[in-house]
Write a protein that binds this DNA or RNA. Structure first.
Length: 233
DNA sequence: GACCAGGCACATC
DNA sequence: GATGTGCATGGT
């Protein structure tokens, strides 16, 4: 049984040293990831909704279509004919559901207190902003946190399927750990630094994309290296 | 042809 | 509160 892991699944604990060590190994392996792949904060927010349970390649097709008709802004999305929006984002899957979500989000963004301004959005206290985002239909914890971190620059750790899968495989957390619990584990055991949170999550996605799909135990997988971090500390 | 991808809302128990 | 299900496209 790995150290720092409670078999009863109640309170897994990391050591700060372990997490930083894992991050450093990933950084060495993948280099800085420079996330999020988008030109504007609003594009980050659209991407965060479009990528729900969807591969990024498909999201890119949808964003490309929106870009082509110059609709990567809240006014255009809010005003656009619903059927047209559905067709543009079709490659990202769940297109009916996501078209609704994009419109709801665009209207939320245009309404007070944000009134279409990223600057105004950034001024809202992060915990309050998180509550506001979670109250928007179509925005759950991961999407809200992606927006807080990658669009607004707040130090919030984004937990996704890869994060859970990788740390469960390292034996550092139970497989069924819930979102908030895992998020707090990271936030409480890392320096509160949005640059670090940004790149760490991006590294985990890079690892997940390249090594956690087809061949979970291939020898070149850096996960094997990461397992040492667990026991070294 | 099955399985998966950078989730979420809603129904049901 | 926990678990199950629908949503949908494109790559492997």
């Amino acid at each position: 049984m790995p150290k720092n892991f409670s078999p009863h699944g109640k309170k897994p604990r990391f050591k700060q040293k372990q997490l930083i060590q894992i991050y450093r190994r990933l950084l060495k392996y993948f280099g800085h990831r420079n996330w999020w792949p988008a030109r504007t904060p609003f594009e980050v927010m659209l991407g965060a909704i479009l990528t729900q349970n969807t591969s990024w390649a498909n999201v890119q097709r949808a964003i490309h279509n929106l870009k082509r008709v110059k609709a990567l802004n809240a006014q255009k999305i809010a005003a656009m004919d619903l059927k047209k929006l559905q067709q543009l984002i079709r490659p990202s899957g769940y297109f009916r559901q996501k078209a609704d979500r994009l419109k709801i989000f665009a209207n939320f963004f245009l309404a007070p207190p944000i009134r279409g301004s990223i600057a105004r959005m950034k001024k809202i206290e992060p915990a309050r902003m998180r509550e506001m985002l979670l109250a928007v239909k179509g925005i759950g914890p991961e999407t809200a946190d992606s927006i807080l971190l990658y669009a607004l620059g707040h130090p919030v750790f984004v937990v996704d399927a890869y994060t859970r899968r990788i740390f469960a495989r390292l034996g550092m957390v139970p497989q069924k750990i819930d979102y908030e619990q895992l998020r707090k584990l990271f936030e409480q055991n890392l320096p509160r630094d949005s640059e670090l949170f940004n790149d760490f999550h991006a590294q985990l996605v890079a690892l997940g994309n390249q090594y956690c799909r087809k061949k979970p135990r291939c020898s070149s997988c850096p996960l094997a290296e990461l397992e040492k971090c667990r026991t070294d500390s």
